[in-house]
């Protein structure tokens, strides 16, 4: 038990390092897209360690406690992530719903801490983040339900193995409509451009993060990097057939994240009610149609 816990912490650390590097490389890529030189690939590390080295301001115990709870919850969630078929800490217990709901502890901690700062912009940011979550999670969950119903397992590594088995396609091919929904939901989950209403630096001064500086902000940055790692690796495992070895995982991971940031580079931001209406208009409809044709008609490619 204790050993797999340590293993899990290792995975969380791996996720942090991996995503921070990938995000740094992506900053460089978007720099190149805009005909700039772009920052160093390890710029994100520099930013985080700089923040950790500063002297922060604190707005009381709930402000600090929320940050600790946020980072703790996200580390706990990342511990369950199966990176490859063999590189995972808890082989049978990587249930999808653990990720869906344990990640919410981190989110709740961050939201609580942000509201505890007493800044109205932070509360507005939290409100927008929760509203966005209400928008994108329902279609996404419907797609996941379809997948679980088809395969009979909700274990993430089990789903990856199912796709690797001979005769089964990756779900991005097998359920093309569902995959579209999942990509859109992933973009919203990562806070990529058309859906990043809750950060909105020019509008609500970076929303929940408005009062943070120094170590609290640094810890939240670490938390966000790990959150993105969780979301992207879930997508890799659920729709891209997981990974047999670490190299394939890295390739898939990098491809997914880079593709999403490239898409987000050419978009402007939605208003918050537009986000909700958008997700309840098309993705939800597509997800339900996909569910019907896959479960009741059995049309799976």
């Amino acid at each position: 038990m204790m050993l797999s816990m340590l293993y899990g912490v290792g995975i969380a650390f791996f996720g942090f390092v991996l995503h921070t590097s990938v995000a740094g490389i992506n900053r460089k890529i978007s720099g190149r897209l805009q005909k700039r030189y772009g920052p160093k690939w390890y710029q994100e590390f520099l930013d985080i360690f700089k923040l950790l080295s500063k002297r922060a301001t604190s707005h009381g115990w709930i402000f600090d406690f929320g940050v600790i709870m946020a980072l703790g919850g996200i580390i706990a969630t990342a511990m369950f992530i199966p990176v490859t078929n063999n590189f995972l800490a808890f082989p049978d217990f990587d249930n999808f719903f653990i990720f869906a709901y344990l990640i919410a502890v981190g989110m709740l901690g961050m939201a609580m801490s942000a509201s505890g700062s007493g800044n109205p912009l932070a509360s507005i940011g939290v409100m927008r983040a929760l509203t966005t979550m209400l928008a994108y999670d329902i279609p996404y969950m419907v797609v996941i339900v379809t997948i679980i119903k088809l395969t009979g397992t909700s274990s993430i590594s089990g789903l990856a193995l199912y796709q690797q088995a001979a005769g089964n396609n990756w779900f991005i091919v097998a359920l093309p409509l569902g995959a579209i929904v999942a990509v859109l939901a992933l973009m919203a989950g990562l806070g990529k451009k058309p859906f990043e209403t809750y950060i909105a630096p020019a509008e609500i001064a970076s929303g929940p993060l408005v009062e943070y500086g120094g170590k609290q902000l640094g810890m939240l940055f670490i938390m966000m990097e790990i959150t993105h790692f969780i979301e992207v690796s879930l997508f890799v495992n659920l729709f891209l057939g997981g990974a047999e070895n670490i190299f394939i995982f890295l390739v898939k991971y990098f491809a997914v994240y880079t593709a999403l940031s490239l898409i987000s580079n050419v978009y402007a931001r939605f208003k918050i009610d537009q986000v909700v209406l958008f997700f309840y208009k098309w993705p939800l409809l597509i997800a339900i149609v996909q569910g019907f044709i896959a479960i009741y008609l059995g049309w799976v490619i």
Binding site: M1, M5, V67, I68, A70, L71, G72, G73, A76, T77
Partner: peptide, 10 residues
Amino acid sequence: IAFGIGVVIA
């Protein structure tokens, strides 16, 4: 336990 460990690390 995982959550506890996460919180302790944080």
